[in-house]
Amino acid sequence: MSEELTLKVKKMIIDSLRIEGTAPDDIDDDAPLFGDGLGLDSIDALQLVVAMEKEFGVVVPDAATGAKVFASVRTMAGHISENLK
C-alpha cells in the first residue's frame, strides 16, 4: 500500500470529520480510530463512508464491514486498494 494513499486517507479523515489541530503526521497508521484512538463514533463512521465513496468510489455497505474497514488508517487504505475501480 502506497504512502501516497495513506496520506490521502489521513487527509480525508481530518477534512471530512473537521478534526481541528491534527495534521496527517499526527495519526499513526495502526492506531485505532474508534474508542481510545481518535475517539470516533458511529456518526463519524457514516461520515467516513460518504467521504470514502465520494473520494475513492469505494463503498462500505454496513456497520459490520465498517468496524473492520475503519479499524485504522492502514485497514482503510487496504480496503480502498482492494476495491478501487
Binding site: S42, A45, L46, V49, V60, P61, D62, A63, G66
Partner: peptide
C-alpha cells in the same frame, strides 16, 4: 432497516 440498507441499526 438493516435488510433495507441501513448502515447501522442499534
Amino acid at each position: 432497516s438493516e435488510a433495507s440498507g441501513a448502515f447501522s441499526a442499534r
